[in-house]
Design a protein around this nucleic acid. Structure first.
Length: 513
DNA sequence: GCGATCAGGT
DNA sequence: CACACCTGATCGC
């Protein structure tokens, strides 16, 4: 549950995801996604009255969020005051104080957040620096690095503050299976059941919230069976979702809901009331999507857990895991970070403590260089052998703001493939792989390895040389570079097998590169 | 009659 | 499993 109060230190005249109390005086409103806990006060009479008196106040959100919001008659009064901003399109907004006429300009950019349809992060740029409000998000490792608009001139943007979704920012939530892993686990279970007979049906016991749509669309796409839901008019203008949903009860996959659904289920009745087909009783299983997590060292178990005769729990998460948050924040390396959420069973101070080492404010201004040691055998990190096939099909360029050894430690889950000096054109042809010998690049790589081993288990060395030798180094186009900063461009291959293009396609513009 | 808040449920 | 939301009770306007 978000405890963000709506305002950011740098831009206190705008309000995000909170619309009560202090926020009633805001010059502009922003909504990151359409979940009720981020909409407090949005339909209160006080705000409605303010709107009626004001000429300039608007609510800014993504086109999908606007569509979802206006589907509910309770929010229709916003209709003329909502401005949909396209994803990844920097947009200037004038913040006007109507009493004094005072005006401030700010540029906002919406970035896909991967939390639910329409969900975005807000990047604000103005006189008080660049700040990022993440809203709720789930991004796989390396996704920040792939977002063009978090970069400028080939480097990560200089971000003053990040207002961060810290729902799972606790080491106990170290890893959560990826969307792809969860999806394929559920797919397999659903498939194995509904192919037994036309009378075998599945009930997806989902909570009342946006965010399961990619599950529905993927199941439908893969199995050719639409998903039964109670309502679909909110998706009327989103064909990629709409085509996979139905209000026709005769389908074999149900995600319909009812207050007494659990009770119904005991009597072999679906929430929509269906108990039989052609007078033949149905055989039903229930699958409850819920978050599963694993500690840093604990072995991941199955993403599907059987909880009864015909009930299952399936792994599913709307929020980033601890390691995904670390990856995100280490990459951005903002001056400050503020948690939006205090995870259950922990405290504000503890969350701050975990986040501190990941941002600049607490670090020495001078990046520490480890002494150059002997080049050790490079090793892979968190790489299960069965995932090998998923690797190396998609190079990930990582522009560097910081000096190389420092930045490299920021990607513990990536596999270092090649490093290319950007401001030393004569060396451009000598890009190095992980395990090569004597060059400058290799000394830097040694630092990388040293840094890595200082904070994780060291016994897990493995034969990278064997698995790497057939790889071609990836060459980069040369870029303009500042003379004062060592300019390196490093290619990683992501180790996260991800969920594949298909499963994310339906997030509309959200999850495009 | 409506909203805010809390407890308790899934 | 710990998310997001629903229902119902109670209180105040």
């Amino acid at each position: 549950m978000s405890s963000f109060q709506g305002q950011m230190a740098e831009y206190p005249t705008i309000s995000i995801d909170r619309f009560d109390r202090e926020n009633l005086r805001a010059r502009a409103y922003f909504l990151s996604h359409c979940h009720k806990d981020h909409m407090k006060g949005l339909r209160a009479p006080t705000l409605k009255r303010r709107l009626e008196c004001s000429l300039t106040v608007h609510l800014y959100c993504s086109p999908v969020t606007k569509e979802l919001l206006l589907t509910s008659p309770k929010y229709r009064f916003w209709e003329k005051r909502i401005v949909a901003i396209e994803i990844e399109t920097p947009t200037q907004i004038a913040l006007i104080d109507e009493a004094s006429g005072e005006k401030e300009e700010i540029v906002v950019t919406l970035l896909p957040a991967g939390h639910c349809p329409g969900s975005v992060m807000f990047l604000f740029q103005g006189d008080n620096g660049t700040v990022l409000y993440t809203g709720d998000f789930r991004l796989a490792k390396g996704e920040a690095a792939r977002m063009e608009l978090l970069h400028s001139g080939g480097r990560v943007r200089d971000i003053q503050s990040v207002y961060l979704d810290t729902t799972f920012c606790d080491p106990r939530f170290y890893q959560i299976p990826s969307r792809g892993e969860c999806l394929s686990g559920i797919l397999e279970l659903v498939q194995s059941w509904i192919t037994r007979s036309p009378y075998h049906v599945v009930w997806l016991n989902c909570k009342a919230a946006y965010g399961y749509e990619y599950l529905f669309t993927n199941l439908s796409e893969e199995l050719g069976v639409q998903v039964h839901v109670d309502k679909l008019d909110m998706f009327r203008n989103m064909p990629d979702i709409l085509q996979h949903l139905t209000t026709e009860r005769s389908t074999q996959i149900h995600a319909c809901r009812h207050p007494k659904a659990e009770e119904y289920y005991q009597w072999n009745k679906l929430p929509c009331g269906l108990t039989s087909k052609n007078k033949i009783p149905l055989h039903t299983i229930s699958i409850k999507p819920s978050t599963m997590w694993f500690g840093e060292r604990s072995r991941k178990t199955n993403v599907i857990v059987r909880t009864g005769e015909s009930s299952y729990r399936a792994c599913f998460s709307f929020h980033s895991s601890y390691s995904e948050i670390q990856d995100f924040l280490r990459y951005l390396c903002p001056v400050n970070v503020y948690p939006n959420v205090i995870p259950v069973g922990t405290t504000l101070d503890k969350v701050r403590e975990t986040l501190k080492p990941l941002c600049r404010s607490s670090q020495n201004t001078e990046p520490k260089y480890k002494p150059l040691g002997k080049l050790k055998r490079a090793r892979r990190v968190h790489l299960d052998s069965e995932e090998e096939d998923d690797l190396f099909d998609d190079p990930l360029p990582v522009p560097l703001r910081h000096k190389l050894p420092y930045q490299l430690t920021l990607h513990p889950e990536a596999v270092l493939l090649t490093a290319v000096p950007q401001n030393q054109p004569e060396k451009l042809g000598q890009s190095t792989g992980c395990c090569e010998g004597e060059s400058v690049q290799s000394s830097l790589l040694t630092n990388f390895i040293d840094c890595e081993e200082s904070n994780s288990e060291s016994e897990e060395e493995s034969d990278t040389s064997a698995s790497r030798q057939d790889l071609d180094p990836v060459m980069l186009p040369q870029q303009k570079a500042d003379a004062d900063v060592p300019q390196w461009k490093v290619f990683f291959k992501r180790n996260d097998s991800g969920c594949g293009q298909q499963s994310l396609k339906m997030y509309l513009q959200n999850l495009k590169r």
